[in-house]
Design a protein around this nucleic acid. Structure first.
Lengths: 189, 189
DNA sequence: AGGCTAAATGTTAGTGACTAACATTTGATG
DNA sequence: CATCAAATGTTAGTCACTAACATTTAGCCT
């Protein structure tokens, strides 16, 4: 029998309980005020078990599953465009192709992230991986590697900033915030 | 007599010794392998004294004194240009106006930073402040605040990435690396 | 030179994120 | 129901960083 890759149902349940409990505590008291020990005891597990399900405290808030999709769409953009425009266009296309996430949940996470300098750093760190995926796609499409890397980093930093701005507000649609950022990054503003 | 603002000579000497010792240790063993305790004992001081001179371990590597200058030059760029181009132009102008730093020292620091994920995060975090300074200058010059913030974040992320790329190489002049990044960010590529 | 005072440094004790090694429980499966 | 692996627990430790309080050092005035 091959090694079990998919997590057990039990494991998945524990993980979900940790996440749920932690986000609620963060939203109420602030990320930095809630220790891992407090989360663990609220869930009814040991600290050690927490770290078996999440590699770090910040992994509770920072997560970013869209990289491959964005890389794919960026790779398909017309090569004549400047790099920034190709990436922005790819992000726009990927956004249109993905099921719209639950804005309330995303906003909760991003608000938590925006409120803590520690977490803003971790969030930016996470964009490094998105940028790398997109860089690779551009290079595969013939772009110069250093230029691709710089352009991808810049666009994702800008998009991340737009998400943080959006999270802080109540009067803005997620799609509009994204579109505004992409316009800036395409040089339209 | 007014309160002494400037640090004492003794304090400045201690600070310099810490910095020197630490950078040498980092360059030899890697940032994450060198504990604060090790730095302190190499210098011949207590850990506590270390933290009196530097707020955190990463402050030894991450430092960034050019913000006001860049904000000033960005504020002077022609308002008709797109935001990215204004900021890129301002960075270019500021770079021309500043005494060229000792490339070897800068490279050492950036190499240390590039080699550790922790530190790359801290470096990016530090660019947040540059971006804010420039954002304020743009807003003062009439730009829309959210757009300015996104553009500034993107440009500084790109420039930072260019510096990290440069540090990894031996065959590239600092000015050329910067110029290449600015060209990308202006949409010229 | 000799003492005064403030800045610099040291000591001790603690918190919080994380890790390693090893023991125990739990649950699905034959 | 016995079994075996996955999940969890326990204990002990490291490292960055902080707080409170004691001690030393160095410039300065008489």
């Amino acid at each position: 029998m091959p090694t079990e890759i998919a997590p057990t149902a039990r494991s998945a349940r524990t993980r979900a309980r940790i996440l749920e409990t932690a986000l609620a505590l963060f939203a109420e008291h602030g990320y930095d005020q809630v220790t891992v020990g407090r989360i663990a005891s609220a869930v009814g597990i040991s600290e050690m078990t927490f770290f078996r399900h999440f590699p770090a405290k910040d992994a509770l808030v920072v997560d970013d599953p869209y990289d491959p999709l964005m890389a794919e769409h960026v790779g398909r953009q017309p090569r004549e465009l400047p790099l920034l425009a190709r990436i922005a266009g790819g992000v726009r296309a990927a956004w249109g192709a993905v099921p719209q996430p639950d804005a309330a949940v995303v906003r909760t996470r991003l608000r938590i992230a925006a409120a803590s300098p520690t977490l803003r750093g971790a969030t930016r760190q996470a964009t490094e991986e998105s940028a790398r995926a997109v860089t690779d796609a551009l290079v595969a499409a013939g772009a110069e590697p250093v230029e691709a890397r710089i352009a991808a980093t810049a666009v994702f930093a800008g998009v991340t900033e737009a998400l943080l701005v959006w999270a802080e507000r109540d009067d803005l649609a997620l799609g509009d915030a994204l579109e505004g950022a992409l316009a800036v990054l395409e040089g339209a503003r």
